[in-house]
Amino acid sequence: MEIDLQGIVVIVGNYGSGKTEVSINLAVNKKRAGVDVKIADLDLVNPYFRTREARSQLSEIGIGVALPPEEYLQADLPILSPVVAGLIKNPVELTIIDAGGDDAGATVLATLADAFNGKSVHMLQVVNPLRPFTGTVKGCLKMRNEIETASKMTINGIIGNSNLIDETRPEDIYSGYEFVKLLSQESGLALKFITVPSNLMTEIDVSRFSCPVLQIKRQLVPPWKKAVKLS
């Protein structure tokens, strides 16, 4: 089952829900399928582990990455590059906007209202039920409300990203799928896809899912580990 997404896709969710890993791997997945993809790192609140860490790998496979200017990449203050607004106004086949965490990280989206004006946008909430505050439907809906209020935009889909990084077990994937399915029913939001870490792909029975699966090759790793090669 292919992931059916085109146009502007804004990835939101709570801190550490996995927005950046999802954004990077979604970009690679669609690029492989022949789609023209660009990705913008809009994470103005997180100091480490951002899309920018994977920029050289992404560029190598022909995915454009919109970032603040090089000299400000390590700045400890929010910098919104005008390139992002330009990208939204003139999107490519698939334009992925990787927002920062929680309502604080989503606030920046509201400042881009002019650019978003009149555009159809998929705004997708990444949910990892094994993270604090989003282990219940109520918690996820609270996060949804907070993000919608801060961004002045409407979430219209869910991405299930149940994982414990290296310690993810198949049962975490299956129970995470059941959770986001329930969340989808309760919220009326479409379940766009779920994720499975690349090392578990052979163990997982994807026929148990009624939605597409995105394989995750982890890119944001601590320095004693190696990122899984994207290409």
Binding site: Y15, G16, L130, R131, P132, L164, I165
Partner: peptide, 8 residues
């Protein structure tokens, strides 16, 4: 187990 950032 839960997945947490060190600060959290």
């Amino acid at each position: 187990k839960v997945l947490m950032k060190g600060n959290e």
